[in-house]
Amino acid sequence: MPKISIKGIQMPESPIRKLVPYAEQAKTKGTLVYHLNIGQPDINTPQIALDAVKNNCLEVVAYSRSEGSEQYREKLAGYYKKHNIQVEAKEITVTTGGSEALLFTMGSIMDPGDEVIIPEPFYANYNGFSVAQGVNVIPVVSDIDANFALPAIKDFESLITPKTKAILICNPGNPTGYLYSREEISQLKELVIKHDLFLIADEVYREFTYDGLHHHSIMEIDGLQDHAIMIDSVSKRYSMCGARIGCIVTRNKRVTDAALKFAQARLSPPTFALLASEAALDTPDSYFEEVKKEYAERRNILIQELKKINGVKVANPKGAFYCIVELPVKDSDKFAQWLLEEFRVNNETIMIAPAAGFYATEGLGHNQVRIAYVLKKEDLIASVNILKKGLEAYKTTE
Rank of each mutant, 00 (worst) to 15 (best):
I6S: 09
E13V: 12
P15I: 08
L19T: 04
G30A: 12
G39T: 09
P46C: 06
L50C: 04
R65D: 15
G68T: 08
G68N: 01
E70G: 03
K81G: 03
I85E: 14
T96V: 13
S99L: 11
I109W: 03
I117R: 01
I117F: 06
E120P: 07
Y123K: 11
Y126F: 15
Q133A: 13
N136W: 05
I138C: 07
F148G: 02
A152K: 14
K154E: 15
I160K: 10
I160Y: 13
I160N: 09
T161V: 11
P162Q: 11
K163G: 05
N174S: 12
T176L: 05
K189N: 06
H195V: 06
L197G: 00
E203M: 11
E203S: 11
E220P: 05
G223V: 09
R244C: 14
I245D: 00
N252W: 04
E278Q: 13
E278W: 03
D282N: 15
D282R: 08
P284D: 11
A296K: 10
I303W: 00
Q304L: 03
L306S: 05
N310Q: 13
K318W: 02
F321P: 00
V329Y: 01
V329I: 12
W338N: 05
L339R: 01
L340G: 04
E348Y: 02
A353V: 10
A360C: 10
N367H: 14
R370L: 13
R370N: 10
R370C: 13
K377R: 13
L380C: 01
I381Y: 01
K389A: 03
